[in-house]
Design a protein around this nucleic acid. Structure first.
Length: 413
RNA sequence: GUGGCUGUAGCUCAAUUGGCUAGAGCGUCUGAUUGUGGUUCAGAAGGUUUGCGGGAUCGUUCCCCGUCAGCCACCCCA
């Protein structure tokens, strides 16, 4: 017997409607904000992710799904930002559209140990905006994220926000951190002692109580921000205040991906266990240039759909609606004639189905009921003789005979 | 990658200190006087006999070891 590979999931018919609903809502909201869909490939040159996410990122070091093809090393995308930026540059979108708003919905791949809310193939719905460093854009993007969650019927989420500053500020922050931690290095956890050399910023969001205390006592806050970045951050906060979006400033919020600059944010939900981030994003003003494009401001975010579904109330609200007309035929002659009737109904856009299991009339009625059919049509010997068909309304239970030539007209209204 | 817990019909769970033919509910299918659903009632199928492999035992679903998978936590992140 074959089995799913660990960390993957079959989305079965019973569950797929909720996924379609989420996708439909997403598309609706994105177009409300004038975003267009982009569909980059799922595989990319592995080097694209090394470059964009940073060599020290956990994702790059151990979580990439790699495919060796002769000399080339491909990778299934662990996230979509890098692909979108690559596409933007490769297709010269910077030259044809000075400003671009795009969204995407699709699977991502990371070779992590599976856990609640953590899969090896999981799904993102996210967006990227390229071509502006305006603080108002940050406000739009964050408010868009909140709007999506509201429409996903997710409540009780928390938005954490911070600013890493520009490239120079980030360097300054790293330098400040190293300086400040010089004397207390031996009090940090083992991981953080390593981070001191490889990835100092991650010390800020270490979960160890002892490390947290040390970091808190440093009171670094936004000392590293240059006047422009500080100004940008304050403008973002003002904009969010104006829109009535609640947030919390979290000075130790850094992200695991190298490309972030200035605004970073993370949306968490208290009902989830340790995988409590349902979405996150931020600015990446240097990434486009880094990947060979022009100096371009950009920002984006993504939600993990599996996590969103864990806290969404949509499934409970969703009603069973079905427009289906179910045809029951009795006898071989009726069965053949039935195929023509089905074809007619479908031609007029009426969803229709029949029984292919040779069930009894009672069995067919039960099946129609299970399918939540709105109408049942019965074609038997009596009907055939008189060139009519019995139409039964499953809600009211009423039924009547209708002339076969009048059927589609009758059903339509 | 590290640690802990779990693994019995499609699903959720039972099975007295290791001992007769491994049970129930839900679901599925069939039927309740020959052409009518939802409720109800009756019956049936469904476990290659308890994830898989090995071991201890007269004997185990239950004990031990390995393995695989799932869950939870660490880590990381959406």
């Amino acid at each position: 017997m074959f089995k799913r590979i660990p960390g993957t999931k079959d989305i079965l018919p019973a569950e797929v409607t909720i996924w379609q609903e989420i996708e439909k809502i997403s598309r609706g909201i994105f177009s409300l904000y004038n975003y267009q869909e982009i569909r980059p490939p799922l595989v990319e040159d592995a080097k694209l992710f090394n470059r964009s996410l940073g060599q020290t990122a956990e994702i790059v070091q151990k979580q990439m799904f790699l495919i060796q093809n002769k000399e080339e090393l491909y990778a299934l995308r662990p996230e979509a930002t890098a692909s979108v930026v690559r596409s933007y540059i490769e297709n010269s979108l910077d030259k044809t559209n000075s400003f671009l708003k795009v969204y995407y919905i699709g699977p991502m791949f990371r070779l992590e140990r599976p856990q609640k809310g953590r899969y090896r193939q999981f799904h993102h719905v996210g967006c990227e905006v390229l071509g502006s460093s305006d603080a108002c854009l940050d406000v739009e993007v964050i408010s868009l994220a909140a709007k999506l969650l509201d429409n996903f019927s997710v409540s009780g989420y928390k938005i954490n926000i911070n600013s890493l500053g520009c490239a120079k500020d980030k360097e300054k922050l790293q330098k400040n951190l190293r300086e400040a931690l010089k004397n207390s290095a031996d009090k940090l956890c083992v991981d953080c002692q390593n981070r001191l050399k490889t990835n100092v910023l991650r010390i800020l969001d270490c979960k160890h109580e002892s490390c947290k205390k040390i970091v808190d006592s440093l009171k670094l806050e936004h000392q590293h921000l240059c006047p422009e970045c500080l100004d940008h951050f304050n403008s973002v906060l003002n904009g969010l205040d104006l829109l009535g979006i609640e947030y919390k400033i979290n000075y130790s919020l850094v992200r695991g991906l190298d490309y972030y600059t200035r605004t970073v944010f993370e949306i968490t939900h208290p009902e989830l266990g340790s995988q409590d981030a349902i979405g996150a994003g931020g600015r990446y003003n240097n990434l486009v240039q880094e990947l060979g494009g022009p100096d371009t401001g950009a920002i984006g975010f993504a939600f993990g759909l599996e996590r969103v579904l864990l806290v969404s109330k949509l499934s409970q609200e969703k009603k069973n609606e079905n427009d289906l007309v179910f045809l029951i035929t009795l006898g071989d002659l009726a069965k053949i004639r039935g195929m023509g009737i089905l074809a007619d109904l479908r031609k007029y856009g009426i969803p229709a189905d029949t029984d292919y299991e040779n069930k009894s009339l009672k069995g067919c009625m039960r099946k129609a009921n299970d399918l939540n059919a709105r109408l049942v049509l019965i074609l038997g010997e009596n009907e055939l003789k008189n060139n009519v068909i019995t139409v039964k309304n499953m809600l009211s239970g009423e039924q009547k005979e209708v002339n076969l030539s009048q059927l589609t007209k009758e059903i339509k209204c």
